[in-house]
């Protein structure tokens, strides 16, 4: 009896040691590149960090600076603009497109490959491509606008339009990925739900609104959170499409482009750290609100 128990606990000890050993490489990496970096960033946010010398503690100065810096609020406002409109458009379009792709029609593979292409294209190529499409004089978008009798728009250099131009590219580039997710969600819906609804005499629209959408709400919720976190960190297209020395930059800059500028152009690393922490707090607050709100609209199967 005694011997048996000892054996048992020896096995347990071996298991525990093995477990710790197996997670050790991951933990060492995370401690250096995530945990240490995380606390270091907090430390920087309370310090004056120059290129040379040790960071100097300055209390809440960096945070106070953010709250009195008009550029910070411009960046915040722009970021929220991209997030609210971006998430809405991405979700709506991806559900609509996925729903069409979910139908059994000829040439589905062709449509699918075409629609998914932006999801596998690098932002650098997308940015430069759209910069060309939206070119004031020679861009094809303005050419089309003129053909249908509208005035050409200075998409990327005018204060009123630049945000919409970025939003357009953002949504265009993001929709593909979420179509993949939504389509996978739709294909997982048991066909018996549709059959039952059809027996009850439901039409196409009713099937979409009464069966597909409710059963897809967990996926829609997941996509809302993921796209929201992604857009709150928007950087690539603004960096690639807008020249930093124009007024358009002011009107389109996001929190992350502002962070990048502070940290790596102006070398204000302490202040930049504070901006990144504020962004993190904003992301967490919005995520928590979303988590709380989900019980009012997300329907889980069981």
């Amino acid at each position: 009896m005694n011997k048996k128990r000892r054996n048992y606990s020896a096995r347990k000890r071996k298991e525990a040691a093995t477990g710790l050993l197996f997670i050790a490489p991951m933990m060492i990496g995370l401690i250096i590149f995530s945990a240490y970096a995380f606390f270091q960033n907090i430390h920087f946010s309370f310090s004056k960090v120059g290129t040379f010398g040790a960071p100097k503690f300055i209390g809440f100065d960096n945070y106070i600076r953010a709250f009195t810096d008009p550029n910070f609020f411009i960046a915040l406002k722009n970021t929220l603009f991209y997030t609210v409109f971006g998430v809405s458009f991405v979700i709506i379009f991806s559900v609509l497109i996925a729903n069409s792709l979910n139908k059994k029609v000829k040439g589905r593979t062709f449509y699918r490959v075409s629609i998914f292409i932006p999801a596998i294209t690098m932002p650098a190529a997308i940015g430069i491509l759209w910069r060309w499409l939206l070119n004031y004089k020679f861009g094809i978008i303005n050419f089309i606008l003129e053909r249908i009798g509208l005035k050409p728009v200075a998409w990327l250099s005018e204060a009123a339009t630049v945000k919409w131009a970025i939003l357009l590219v953002l949504v265009w580039s993001m929709v593909s990925y979420y179509v993949i997710i939504m389509l996978a969600g739709m294909q997982a819906i048991d066909s018996s739900y549709y059959e039952a609804a059809r027996v009850d005499g439901a039409g196409q629209l009713q099937l979409f609104f009464k069966v597909t959408i409710p059963l897809l709400t967990p996926i829609i919720f997941f996509s809302t959170i993921m796209s929201m976190i992604g857009i709150l960190q928007i950087f690539d297209f603004i960096y690639l499409m807008i020249q930093r020395d124009t007024i358009a930059y002011q009107y389109s800059m996001s929190m992350v482009t502002y962070f990048y500028e502070l940290a790596f152009v102006k070398d204000l690393r302490g202040y930049a750290s504070a901006v990144s922490i504020l962004l993190c707090i904003i992301i967490m607050i919005i995520t928590v609100i979303q988590m709380y709100l989900q019980k009012y609209w997300v329907k889980y199967d069981n």
Partner: peptide
């Protein structure tokens, strides 16, 4: 703790990682 790390936006790590 790892779950928590996943929620943190990448920018938080960038300056310290660069210095590392």
């Amino acid at each position: 703790m790892m779950l928590g790390l996943m929620m943190v936006p990448g920018q938080i790590f960038i300056i310290p990682r660069f210095q590392l």
